[in-house]
Each structure stands twice: as C-alpha cells, then as structure tokens.
C-alpha cells in the first residue's frame, strides 16, 4: 500500500471502485457536465470511504489476458448452455430425470475467485451453485443434465478454475 502514490491512496482508498461509481453516476445522468462530474465524484468518494470501514481483504488482479479469455469462454458457454437447457425444456421437460446434485473438490481458495466462479456457474443455465464448504474445499452444485458427472467436474476445474487461479492467486 505504501507506494509513491501514498497520498492519492489516502484520499481515494479504492481508485477502481471510485472510477466505477463515477462512471455509473454519469451513465445514470446521461451527461458529462462539470456539475455532474463534481457531484458524482463526491458520491463516489463517500462510498469508497464507507468501504474503508468495511475493510475488505486486499486483492491483486493478475493477467488481464486470462481475464479476457475467461470472459470469452463464459460468453460462449452462456450461449451453448442456453441452447442445451432450452432443448431440455421444450423436448419433454417433465422427464428431467437426469437432474441431480453433485460435489466437486475445488483447489481455488481466494474468496473473490470463488465469488466469480459462483456467478459464472449460476449464470450459465444448467448449473447451480448451492453450497461451498471452505474448510473442506468442496462445492455442492445442482446440475440439470447430470448424465456424466466427470465431464461437469472437468468443465469446472479445467475450463474455469484454472484461469481463476491464474487471475486471483
């Protein structure tokens, strides 16, 4: 934290959050007028100071290339799983016999990485994050098309978890 930009850090503790909030404010106002920029900066500044009180665990994002790759993979998978789940629903949804729970052992330990994985898995139709046990590192999830448990484990571990570990750990 005590880098040369220490003073800036003290005034704006979370620069990325500050910028994101300011951008949201300007998007909502649909304007780039100086008044809105000042007001948005004040709001964003207040919110970042509240975040200091919450004291989140610091993290450093690595490898932007891996992030882009992950985003692309998720986008492709959203389309693919939408198609798969849509087919299951339209073709005899009453026969959803293959749905079931399964458990996966995760090596990912970083909280933010786990949060991103939870959003990815739940956002792609067909997989649902149910419960993560941080002590054992196991994840309970529900899968709509649970024919081959191993292929789902591979999907999570090879397709997402490896990239998330590169980004967060």
């Amino acid at each position: 934290m005590n880098r040369p930009s220490g003073l800036l850090r003290r005034i704006i503790p979370f620069p990325l959050l500050f910028l994101a909030l300011l951008a949201m404010w300007l998007l909502l106002q649909q304007s780039l007028a100086p008044g809105h920029i000042v007001l948005g900066s004040l709001v964003a500044l207040g919110a970042t100071w509240v975040m200091v009180a919450l004291d989140p665990e610091p993290t450093r994002l690595r490898r932007p290339a891996a992030m882009a790759q992950l985003a692309l993979r998720v986008l492709v998978d959203v389309f693919r799983s939408n198609l798969a789940v849509g087919t299951i629903i339209l073709r005899g949804g009453r026969r959803s016999d293959h749905a079931g729970f399964m458990t996966v052992r995760l090596d990912l330990r970083n909280e933010y990485g786990l949060a991103v994985l939870a959003i990815i898995l739940t956002c792609t139709p067909g997989t649902l994050w149910v419960n993560h046990d941080p002590a054992r590192g196991t994840l309970l999830l529900h899968v709509l098309d649970l024919v081959d448990e191993q292929s789902w484990t591979d999907l999570i571990k090879l397709r997402y978890e490896r990239l998330l570990m590169e980004i967060f750990e």
Binding site: V78, N82, G86, I89, G93, R94, A99, F101, P125, H142
Partner: peptide, 24 residues
Amino acid sequence: VGSIGLVRLNNFYARVHAPTLGAT
C-alpha cells in the same frame, strides 16, 4: 422458453435453472 421451463420441469431444483435463460 425459460418461463415455460418454470411450469414444465417437475422438481424445484430443476426449476431453479429455468429463469436463468431469461436473465442471460
């Protein structure tokens, strides 16, 4: 299609998957 799944799937945990189609 997602909302039809909400009606047609026969188990609560299967039905939770249905609204994600609309939401994505």
